[in-house]
């Protein structure tokens, strides 16, 4: 009897443990990525992305709650919380309250922690970076010079051997200034690019926005700096609202179309009116008989 009890107990316990194991197995692995961005040496923000593997393919995970920290995971270092959108992305601006922590060292680390859920365990991801910035200048003959500096102790020093992109900011992306996709900084931390996009439409004053970028760099993150230059063509908005055209509004069709259409319509309807008059004439003739 005792042997039977032990057997039953063993079966129950092993079933329970197996159940837990199965439940744990059904949780997917959440892959959490974190990126640091600095736009124009002013706006700093963190961007996290979440994905998981479904049927061998990576899929974005929306609706994951994330907590962003500076230096370490502690309530005092919390930068903010965000939830991933439909594309599995979430971002927060680094708040001014984090200034003291930021100023402590030339190097900085950021962390992001996902909340545990029914589908995913909590995951932490971090990045370590060296503070850096880009300076962009222009020279004669439409030459663009960009310099990358990093912070060493309290001094900004040029950085050699980093890939940088120089482009013109457009509405839906960036257009390279020349055929070269990227430039590598020299011993002075500088790159020099020639502007070869003459004739590009600018704003109403002919201004274009140049942008120098370091993208997805392991040491510096994502940095970008902009400069406005008058190298574009002056764009003048010409309203065609009051022009006659095939796509114009009512009453603004081309004259040739109006002339043709009204002539044809009038021609046919004059014939029809003539025929209606003939019916009247037939009635009069009938009345005379």
């Amino acid at each position: 009897m005792r042997k039977f009890k032990y057997t039953v107990l063993t079966i129950v316990v092993s079933t329970f443990l197996t159940g837990i194991a199965i439940c744990q197995e059904t949780k997917n692995n959440l892959i959490l990525g974190l990126g640091y961005f600095n736009d124009n040496n002013q706006m700093q923000y963190l961007k996290a992305n979440t994905k998981t593997k479904v049927s061998g393919k990576f899929t974005q995970v929306p609706g994951v709650s994330l907590s962003f920290y500076i230096s370490s995971v502690s309530p005092g270092n919390l930068l903010g919380k965000a939830t991933t959108d439909d594309k599995g992305m979430a971002f927060i601006l680094i708040p001014p309250a984090a200034r003291d922590e930021w100023n402590k060292s030339p190097k900085q680390s950021f962390l992001v922690v996902s909340d545990s859920s029914k589908l995913y365990d909590a995951v932490t991801s971090s990045i370590d970076l060296v503070k850096a910035r880009i300076r962009i200048d222009t020279a004669e003959d439409k030459k663009i010079i960009a310099t990358l500096y990093e912070l060493k102790d309290t001094v900004w020093v040029p950085v050699k051997g980093v890939d940088m992109r120089v482009a013109i900011k457009r509405l839906d992306g960036d257009l390279n200034v020349s055929e070269a996709p990227t430039y590598t900084t020299d011993s002075l931390g500088m790159i020099s690019a020639d502007f070869k996009q003459d004739g590009l439409p600018g704003d109403t004053a002919g201004n274009l926005i140049l942008i120098a970028k370091v993208e997805d760099n392991d040491t510096y993150g994502n940095l970008s700096t902009e400069k406005t230059v008058p190298w574009g063509k002056v764009s003048k908005y010409v309203s065609n609202y009051n022009q006659r055209s095939l796509y114009g509004r009512r009453g603004w069709s081309p004259l040739w179309l109006e002339w043709m259409a009204y002539t044809i319509i009038a021609g046919v309807w004059v014939v029809l009116l003539y025929l209606f008059m003939q019916i009247r004439k037939l009635k009069q003739l009938g009345a005379q008989v």
Partner: peptide
């Protein structure tokens, strides 16, 4: 159609009208 008296003049007008209509209806 009580006004139709089958007079030659009426016939002529009717015939001409039908011809005009036959020509007009094709392009339309």
């Amino acid at each position: 159609g009580s006004f139709w008296k089958n007079t030659p003049k009426q016939k002529k007008i009717s015939r001409r009208s039908i011809n005009i209509l036959s020509i007009t209806i094709i392009p339309v």
